[in-house]
Write a protein that binds this DNA or RNA. Sequence first.
DNA 1: ACCGGCCAGATTGTCAACAATCCGTGAGGC
DNA 2: GCCTCACGGATTGTTGACAATCTGGCCGGT
Lengths: 225, 225
Amino acid sequence: MHATIQSQTRADDAFESLQTAIVKGDLAPGEKIGEIELCARFNLTRGPLREALGRLESRGLLVRRPHAGVKVVSVSADELIELYHIREIMEGLAARQAAERMTDAEIADLHATLDSHEAMIEQAHGQAYYQGEGDYDFHHRIATGSRNAKLAQMLLGDLYYMVRMYRYRLSTSAGRPQKALGEHRRIAEAIAQRDGELAEFLMRRHINAARKNIEQKIRDGVLDI
Amino acid sequence: MHATIQSQTRADDAFESLQTAIVKGDLAPGEKIGEIELCARFNLTRGPLREALGRLESRGLLVRRPHAGVKVVSVSADELIELYHIREIMEGLAARQAAERMTDAEIADLHATLDSHEAMIEQAHGQAYYQGEGDYDFHHRIATGSRNAKLAQMLLGDLYYMVRMYRYRLSTSAGRPQKALGEHRRIAEAIAQRDGELAEFLMRRHINAARKNIEQKIRDGVLDI
DNA sequence: ACCGGCCAGATTGTCAACAATCCGTGAGGC
DNA sequence: GCCTCACGGATTGTTGACAATCTGGCCGGT
């Protein structure tokens, strides 16, 4: 566990390690963390660590007050909802551009991805996996398929990490994976037909549904943040 | 010019100095820059500088290859157009949410801002100022007025700097400031009437027009990037 | 007893030296 | 003549020590 690939620079490793630690919840939101503690935890010195902290702060995953330490960002329920409003429009744009620009090979991959998701859901009632990573997979492919570098960067670099951060503690609704898969299928179909407008519409509705699902959970008190 | 306020930490100063240097064009896109050279230029050591570089890289203003140095990002004409596609949807959302959430005082300020812009345009044919900073002012107020922290962060922190980077070398079209001011007025009016849908529509059309203006310039060869 | 200012400890910010890696130049071979 | 390969120089990445600043507790005053 101690030695990752180390192919890149040390600060990069620190950045990724911290990012995943925050996303997975190993570092709880609002938790104040000291630099030396982190150095011991990830086996590195303060130089690269501080560089990584700068990047994380710039991405909004943690906040830093001068001479007072850093703490993991904690977003309220309202802010989580806002995240979904942003996702709705940005992923809508991504879907439209993906429909116009994805290669045929990429579209085939997209369908294959959905096939594998379907198999997982059927096999082991793999709801947890699907909700946790499979969904991310689908959206990831569309973001990169948009051929819009900045859009992909903002989605993959900024938004998804914050969303995933809360998805890890968010139980999956019964039957939601199947429904989501159906919505994914229809989006992929629209992309395959090169119907950008329809793909955008369907993607926006898809994320809208996900947002309402979360709002319902917050109302029911199932999700407390 | 050498000593800014220094109220914050040294790395913050470096970050801001570099950011403005990149935006203003003092560091040309594609230019490779050495760390020691930057240290001499901004009177600081490599520690804080590297932290600032990390933040800039994370925001996409410069790219860094391990052991090979950093260079200012250079975006192609296509990528500049893509930036405007993203702006269109994000600022549309911001305008809609601003119409729903801005306080009356903020709306009054917004109108006052436009009055001052109008005065500037009339006085000195202040097209340069308006295009350079006044426009930014207006959009800045709407972004913060949306009460959507992440949205404002992405607009103000990521997109605007990249757009401004190219605006500095982009001559203003004759008569465009007046036209833009009129569009701004209508958007502000829609916000004052709390008509979110209309504000979104007008804002999207406004940015769409700006994009087409740039596309035209690129076709005419006026803007070479 | 409560509040304000001060002191000590710890933590963060900064610095200068060391080690690892890449780029350009030149020689050598085909 | 052109390509390949190795080497030196320079630059980046990293490290450990030094200085500045904040937090928590104590003391004295009211």
